[in-house]
């Protein structure tokens, strides 16, 4: 795999050399950007595919050891853990699949009656171990029985992305989640008090995955926000962020409950 950012695609800069016109220079730059984007995507895809397999592989090792000792209670507990890890892996793969579908304009929503309140509560519950590990306390204010005609998987994906993002970038500080409804619209907010996002980065974090990872270091926001934006917009909603660098972020997702495709 080539080093991102160090490309001379197809040797064009060499062949055209000093004859570059403004137009040619722009094309060359575009090609360079495209190659860099491809490499960034490969790095992100490797990260997303290989990372969650690591705990699965370790769990298989632990299961083999437990099998040797015949400790049924331990085997059973390890199998539960393995099952959970595979669920997480599938969820990560779904994001990559979403990206592929969104990129090729093939995203198809499957709308049904979804209990948004229960979905948000369940996602929060599933993130409890991560919250404990991160040392963040999450407070939720969820209005009961908000029902929407939405794609259940897409809505779950959005909530998961925003909550895991708040945990990762929240610097162990409190996180607040709210879900309310008014005039046939639901509003989900996720607020952290972590590193925050500077004004110059607010648009970048929602851009295509190619731009979501900073080239030299991998400290940028991941794929989740771009996917969240596309899924929200596909359901006729909107997503935005406010906040300041060093003072945390407040993400707001607004979704029509009666179902409007965009």
């Amino acid at each position: 795999m080539a080093n991102p950012g160090d490309h001379k695609p197809m040797g064009m800069a060499d062949t055209i050399g000093g004859d570059e016109t403004g137009g040619q220079a722009a094309i060359i730059q575009e090609l360079r950007d495209a190659v860099s984007a491809r490499d960034d995507f490969l790095a992100v895809a490797a990260h997303e595919l290989r990372n969650p397999i690591t705990p699965i592989r370790i769990s298989v090792h632990l299961l083999r050891l437990a099998q040797e000792t015949g400790d049924q209670a331990r085997i059973s507990s390890l199998l539960d853990r393995l099952d959970h890890q595979i669920e997480r892996f599938i969820s990560r793969m779904d994001v990559l699949l979403d990206i592929a579908q969104i990129s090729s304009n093939q995203l198809r929503l499957e709308r049904s009656e979804v209990d948004l309140s229960e979905t948000v509560k369940r996602v929060i519950e599933e993130h409890q171990p991560m919250l404990v590990r991160a040392g963040s306390e999450l407070t939720a204010r969820i209005e009961d029985s908000i029902i929407g005609f939405l794609d259940a998987v897409a809505f779950t994906q959005i909530v998961e992305n925003l909550i895991s993002n708040a945990i990762k970038y929240g610097q162990c500080k409190p996180i607040e989640v709210t879900l309310t409804s008014a005039r046939d619209q639901a509003e989900l907010t996720v607020c952290d008090h972590g590193i925050g996002i500077g004004l110059e980065d607010r648009e970048r974090i929602f851009q295509r995955f190619e731009r979501a990872v900073q080239r030299k270091s991998h400290t940028g926001f991941g794929l989740g926000l771009w996917v969240s934006r596309r899924l929200t917009e596909a359901m006729g909603g909107s997503i935005g962020v406010i906040g300041q660098k060093g003072a945390g972020s407040l993400f707001t997702v607004t979704l029509p409950l009666k179902g409007t495709n965009r």
Binding site: N51, T54, P55, I56, I58, P129, M130, R133
Partner: peptide, 13 residues
């Protein structure tokens, strides 16, 4: 590691 699952199993083992 930022991967919660990795931390969990490595800590365990």
């Amino acid at each position: 590691d930022d991967e919660f699952g990795v931390l969990e199993v490595l800590e365990f083992i």
